[in-house]
Write a protein that binds this DNA or RNA. Sequence first.
DNA 1: TGAAAAAGTAACTATAAAAGTTACACAATG
DNA 2: CATTGTGTAACTTTTATAGTTACTTTTTCA
Lengths: 128, 128
Amino acid sequence: MAVHIMTALAYLGEKTSSELLSHTVNTNPVVIRRLLGDLTRSGLITADRGKHGGFRLARDAADISLLDIYRAVMDEQPLVSLHDNPKNTRCAVSCRVRPVLSGYLSRAQQAFEQSLAEVRLTEITQAM
Amino acid sequence: MAVHIMTALAYLGEKTSSELLSHTVNTNPVVIRRLLGDLTRSGLITADRGKHGGFRLARDAADISLLDIYRAVMDEQPLVSLHDNPKNTRCAVSCRVRPVLSGYLSRAQQAFEQSLAEVRLTEITQAM
DNA sequence: TGAAAAAGTAACTATAAAAGTTACACAATG
DNA sequence: CATTGTGTAACTTTTATAGTTACTTTTTCA
């Protein structure tokens, strides 16, 4: 949903309330405010409190990538990871797969993120 | 978990029961059998039923990639996708983000999968 | 200066997905 | 025909996410 919101903010280009944003996503304002909180803490948007408050992009849409948004919202959790059952110490595989696999998985995730990094918010608003 | 199992099968190199496999992952045999079912249906392993039954790789570990395993288990679901709330027909963004974004997301997913495709099961067993 | 309009957040409920469990049918072996 | 395995249905548990209610704090402006 974060991308939806960021796109809306870029598209509208002006200060917008969580109430209004919640309508475009068709959900509850609080859900949106929680998301907006993440985006604010990551420095992608700024929040004005009080009457006539609202949110706007903190910098130009050309300087915001899909990766920025993805990272703001996903808190460091890997895209896909191995189960986290305790290892069976009597099994060589159980003891050693983890580090080997996580190397390959994080490489794949880097490829994914690299691809997101190449897309700017402007590209999305323009394509609409 | 599927990778863990496939690695174990490649590592052991012989017919193995779900019971035994469940021990290396430290979980319930039925959970494992459900996974083994996916892997069998995808043609990555073969299942022998009856007494002295068990599972083994259907082809050489050098011919099985992480992507093969990933696809066997994830049933076509995209890695990350937009929310699926109904669109607000009065909002241009709500109406049009979806197709635009899904293009970029599937491109990123392709990068991810490409990376997985480059890793063979042999590489993993050898690294252990 | 106080009512109004907004963000921020805590605490709860609802929903859905995944994992785990129990129980049993079916298959092959010897 | 008993034994040892797979296959699977049905249920419970767990966890994460979304949604909800209710409230505090901040700012504006009449």
